[in-house]
Design a protein around this nucleic acid. Structure first.
Lengths: 160, 160
DNA sequence: TAGCACTACTTCAAACTTCAACTACCTTCG
DNA sequence: CGAAGGTAGTTGAAGTTTGAAGTAGTGCTA
């Protein structure tokens, strides 16, 4: 490990984190401005709406959201209080529980989605040409696949 | 706004947020594993170490970190308690204060930096070829520039 | 040069996140 | 079967983040 990151890659890294922070902040702000949902709320609603039976196990949801178990418990409790989801215990596995999308949750999502997608478009995508979109997809799909795999490996074999 | 985001761009967006979440989580974990610093702590130390006089105004620091003022106040207080930075009131402007890097802070940074840069390299950069690095830089430098400009404009002219 | 609007930062309470127990249930192997 | 050990999710305390309100100092302008 002589020079860990060359000048070019360091610049790339810095541009990426700074702009990403700004982008996430801006999207969160836009979302709250026209929907009473946080980014996390929105993402939970999207995942549930796409799941078969509009329901997902807590663990599955946590791993897709990249949330710790306790963070997800809190998140779902909060959404349950607001009537966006319900919690049901899992019939196959008595330890488990599932989050289920409610009718109100679905309506809220349908209301919020166009605004949010529009915000993603104007804050990020409008500026990218097709080649850039392709590049972004390639980089981050590969990265996501690798990080997911590494995480799975490290939970299966708890030590290096 | 008929179809806000085409299929390709939606996929790009999803890959980007998911992988970014995983990456940030992993980097944070690596950083804590060998340094007792959070990602925010590390970033504060980097910015201060590069500033003239190794000191920065709170506002400047907040805007570069993309932190709210109160979040920065808390962050700096916490680092001050741990001896990483000191707080001095600004001579030019009696309202302001500056965060100053301490000797201990600098040592801590020098200790942590190689590990952290290595983690950025292995978790992200090793997988990218030069063209991808160039693409990443171009996309995110442009994005950062635009978001920074928009934020400035909206604080100068508080209403649309 | 006094007043008024503005800026820089801090504070406080409430909401959120983490981390380390803890509960309850499943699994497997003697 | 029935303990031992693992897994799924929750809880509680401590730490962090937010957002609104507060404090103090600046700078324009009349």
């Amino acid at each position: 490990m002589t020079e860990s990151l060359d000048r070019t890659r360091l610049a790339a890294w810095r541009a990426y984190i700074e702009a990403s922070q700004r982008l996430f902040t801006q999207l969160e702000e836009d979302l709250r401005a026209d929907s009473a949902l946080s980014f996390a709320d929105y993402h939970v609603l999207v995942l549930l709406s796409e799941a078969p039976g509009q329901r997902l196990r807590m663990g599955e949801l946590a791993s897709r959201l990249v949330f710790s178990p306790s963070r997800l418990t809190y998140q779902i409790s909060s959404m349950q209080r607001r009537g966006l989801v319900a919690r049901e215990s899992c019939p196959q596995d008595g330890r488990g529980s599932e989050a289920v999308l409610t009718a109100a949750g679905l309506l809220t999502l349908r209301d919020a989605a166009p605004h949010h997608l529009n915000s993603v478009r104007t804050n990020l995508m409008d500026d990218l040409d097709d080649a850039e979109v392709a590049c972004l997809t390639r980089i981050f799909e590969r990265l996501g696949r690798r990080l997911r795999a590494e995480r799975d490996a490290s939970t299966t074999h708890p030590h290096s």
